[in-house]
Simulated scan of single mutants.
Amino acid sequence: MIKAIIFLVLICSSTLVKAEWFEVVGYASTQGRDTAQARQAAVQDAITQALIFSGATISSVQSIADGVLNQDEIKIKSHGEIQQVNLVSESHEGDNYSVTLHLDIYATHNQCAEQKFNKQIAITQSQLTQPHQARLGQIFDIAKSTSQRLFNTLNERTSTVKPIPYLNTINVREYFAQQFDYNPALIETIATNSNSQYVLLSQITDIAAMDKLNSDYAFWQSDEYARSFKIDFALYDALTYEKVWYQHYATRGVWPFEKTELIDVYSDKFWNTHYGQQIQEVFNKLSQDLNAAVSCIPTKGKILYLNDDQVVINLGRVHGLEPGTVLSIMHQSSIITNRGSVVNSTIQTIDQVKVISVNMQNATAINLNTRPLSNIQLNDIVQVKIKNEDNFSLHN
């Protein structure tokens, strides 16, 4: 039972708050952990997910004694404060430990309003930059298997990020070069095929075996090595082709297999090892960082069809739209730089449209102005318009 919780929270001084209940499931592996440590990791995972969904950014971790959360030294750069946490259930099945928490979170007036609208992100297949390093265990499919694992991680978590799988083999190396002379055509193709506002690219830069962990004199033990895992992520805005976020992650884990053993990187046997769980921890952190990077960015889409005062756009219910949602329109144009690269630019118009019907991936909207929609073209940009009213204050 969770006995006492103390949060150090940096919140705005506004007293206008709205209480919301969140029920979140946190997961952790028991590989390399005792029950108390697994419970700690699962509780941390659940609370972190809830805080991020409510608008918080995590900067440190919880402390748990004897498997019971009795103190929280977490530092939160937050617009929300947790008032109560209830442990609904916990279970231990195989190598997995899970807890379900019920959290009462008070969101303040200054919480980011954009985060209630979702952003679809195309998750592409990673690229292994040093294929020869995969010979140990013959794990040449690790780029594909980790990309699928990343998609599943993002898909299972509650956040403004809505992942779309795009696991075709692509060459991403130029998108991580310092010269930024990449071809935007790939970004455009992926975004169009997946109906995504962003494209996430990644490259695995190091999976080399490292030091032997057990002694040569312990001949009765199987050899165990430390193995590295380093990966770069770059997030591109599909409307402007700009790199809007970049992060490098590095970890290492125990590689418990014999040198000659062939390893199936899609199997539970691999993912339940210490090495596999360390990779999973990277993806858990990535999900937090990615959500923080895009949650307060306006949700944008394109005009797919235009007929007099009605437009069809590529945003829908999955993005958080509903009848009555207002969007502003921006003209889009392409500029060719002196280096021959393409830069997309937008010009804000005074035109606005209101959603009248919504499907999962698109919506129909009508002109809100008395003047006709002039000079509006296909592929012009629509942006969800955030009202300035007190969206997060309590109403009597």
Score class of each variant (00 low, 15 high):
D181Y: 06
I187E: 00
R149P: 03
T158R: 12
A185M: 11
T205R: 08
T153Y: 00
T158Y: 13
D206K: 08
S194L: 08
P163C: 10
T158K: 12
I164L: 13
F219D: 05
Q178Y: 06
D216W: 05
T146L: 08
L200S: 01
I190G: 01
F219P: 01
K212S: 04
D216S: 04
L186K: 13
A185S: 14
T169Y: 15
I170G: 05
F180W: 00
N195D: 07
M210A: 12
N171R: 12
V199I: 05
N183A: 11
Y182H: 07
F151V: 03
T160K: 04
S194A: 14
Q197M: 11
N183I: 06
L201W: 01
P163S: 08
S215A: 05
Y175G: 04
W220L: 10
Y175Q: 04
L150A: 12
D216L: 09
Q178G: 00
S145M: 06
A218M: 08
L167E: 04
Q178C: 00
A177H: 06
A208Y: 06
Q203H: 01
S215C: 00
I164T: 14
L201M: 14
Y166N: 13
Q203R: 14
F151H: 11
E174D: 07
N152Q: 14
N171W: 06
A209T: 08
L186R: 12
I207Y: 06
E156F: 02
T146V: 13
A185I: 08
F151S: 02
S194V: 11
K162R: 11
L200A: 06
T160I: 06
V172W: 03
N214I: 09
I164E: 14
V172H: 05
P163I: 08
A218D: 11
N214L: 02
T169D: 15
Q203S: 08
S147L: 10
I207H: 09
I190Q: 01
Q179V: 04
Y182G: 09
Q148T: 12
N193Y: 03
A143Y: 07
T146K: 04
A218V: 02
V161E: 01
N152D: 14
R173T: 15
R157V: 10
L213T: 10
D181M: 14
P163T: 07
R173E: 14
L186A: 15
L154V: 05
N168L: 10
F219V: 09
D216H: 04
Y217T: 12
S196I: 11
Q148S: 11
L154Y: 02
T189K: 14
K144P: 02
I204T: 07
P165C: 01
N168P: 00
I187Y: 01
T153V: 13
K162I: 13
K144L: 15
N195K: 05
R157K: 15
V172M: 02
A185N: 13
S215N: 13
L201P: 03
N168A: 09
D216V: 04
S147I: 13
D181K: 14
R157S: 09
I204S: 07
F151D: 01
T192A: 15
L167M: 14
M210G: 09
K162Q: 11
T153H: 01
P163E: 07
S196V: 08
K144G: 13
S215K: 01
T169V: 15
N183L: 07
I204H: 04
I204G: 07
T153I: 07
S196E: 04
M210F: 04
